[in-house]
Amino acid sequence: MKHNKLIAGFLLIAATFGACKKDDDVAELSAPVISALEIGPDNNKTAHPGGDVHVEAEITATANIESVTLEINPKSGTGWKLNTVYTEGFAGLKNAEFHKHIDVPADAALGSYDVVLKVRDSNGQETKVESTLALQNDPSLPSLAGFEVGLNAAGNDLHAEARVTSPNKIAQIIVEIHGKDWEKEFSYADANMVGQTSYNFHKHMDVTAAPKGHYHVHLKVVDQAGKAAEFEEHFDKP
């Protein structure tokens, strides 16, 4: 009996120790970390109605990412509001790059906005970082009409086209293609493009090396005044 009681006591202590150790292991997993938050090109924290706003950050979550939430709200009064939860491409990862181009409604009210990026991990821990955004009207910025991209049946050629308008004259156009495991940049400064205030952009880009997956296409128009506007489309490579 004494021998059995000793064994039972030992097992109880071992089980308790194991449970405590598991609790300690969970407790030791730190909350998610968000770094290098960038709002707008070169972190200029500005955007324009009818365009888009670039939001980028690096995320690390020891306990794996569960979701990422982006909130944009006016500092005061009424205005444009956004609350989007992202899981696809993030859930289950320990490290991720958050890189989104968010469309700004053409009728969005000008003014100052609060931007909050939140990351929640699988343990329920949440981290958030805050920044600001100014919606400004700038009719001199480059703009696009009819922007579209398309992949050929062979999956090796991507065409991109758009009608570009640039009051300060075009300096160059940059196309960046990126997915989970592949990215490439194409830069154009053709003689018949540079110095024009309007241009029919139509290019074909070699994407043979890109693996299957979902891709973002960013078309950036830089004008001769040093201003730039960036626009986004998507495609899937089967």
Results as ranks from 00 to 15, higher is better:
residue 141 L to V: 09
residue 123 N to D: 04
residue 131 S to L: 12
residue 131 S to W: 07
residue 142 P to Y: 14
residue 168 N to S: 14
residue 147 F to G: 02
residue 164 V to R: 02
residue 134 A to C: 02
residue 142 P to T: 13
residue 172 Q to W: 05
residue 132 T to K: 11
residue 174 I to E: 06
residue 162 A to M: 01
residue 136 Q to N: 08
residue 157 D to G: 04
residue 122 S to N: 12
residue 143 S to V: 12
residue 169 K to W: 04
residue 115 V to Y: 01
residue 164 V to P: 00
residue 120 R to F: 05
residue 155 G to V: 07
residue 167 P to Y: 14
residue 123 N to W: 02
residue 163 R to F: 13
residue 162 A to C: 02
residue 114 D to I: 06
residue 140 S to P: 01
residue 172 Q to H: 08
residue 153 A to E: 14
residue 168 N to P: 06
residue 122 S to G: 07
residue 156 N to L: 03
residue 158 L to C: 14
residue 152 N to E: 09
residue 136 Q to S: 06
residue 124 G to Y: 03
residue 174 I to D: 06
residue 154 A to E: 11
residue 158 L to Q: 06
residue 116 V to S: 08
residue 128 K to G: 05
residue 115 V to G: 02
residue 127 T to H: 03
residue 157 D to S: 11
residue 119 V to D: 03
residue 159 H to S: 15
residue 175 V to R: 02
residue 148 E to T: 04
residue 118 K to A: 03
residue 149 V to P: 10
residue 146 G to W: 03
residue 132 T to Q: 09
residue 144 L to H: 04
residue 165 T to E: 10
residue 168 N to G: 09
residue 161 E to S: 08
residue 122 S to E: 10
residue 120 R to G: 09
residue 117 L to C: 11
residue 128 K to S: 07
residue 142 P to R: 12
residue 136 Q to V: 10
residue 174 I to V: 10
residue 124 G to V: 02
residue 125 Q to H: 03
residue 163 R to Y: 14
residue 157 D to P: 04
residue 150 G to Y: 15
residue 147 F to Q: 07
residue 153 A to T: 13
residue 166 S to A: 11
residue 151 L to Y: 08
residue 134 A to V: 03
residue 127 T to P: 01
residue 155 G to Y: 01
residue 141 L to W: 08
residue 126 E to H: 10
residue 143 S to Q: 15
residue 128 K to Y: 04
residue 163 R to M: 08
residue 136 Q to G: 01
residue 120 R to I: 12
residue 166 S to V: 02
residue 167 P to N: 11
residue 148 E to P: 00
residue 155 G to F: 07
residue 137 N to W: 03
residue 116 V to M: 12
residue 165 T to D: 10
residue 122 S to K: 15
residue 117 L to N: 10
residue 120 R to N: 11
residue 141 L to Q: 08
residue 174 I to S: 05
residue 130 E to M: 14
residue 147 F to L: 06
residue 129 V to Q: 08
residue 174 I to W: 01
residue 139 P to G: 12
residue 148 E to C: 04
residue 153 A to F: 08
residue 138 D to Q: 12
residue 172 Q to C: 03
residue 156 N to Q: 06
residue 173 I to W: 01
residue 158 L to D: 05
residue 141 L to D: 10
residue 162 A to E: 02
residue 130 E to V: 13
residue 126 E to C: 06
residue 129 V to S: 03
residue 139 P to M: 15
residue 153 A to N: 14
residue 167 P to I: 13
residue 154 A to H: 09
residue 124 G to M: 07
residue 130 E to F: 08
residue 171 A to K: 15
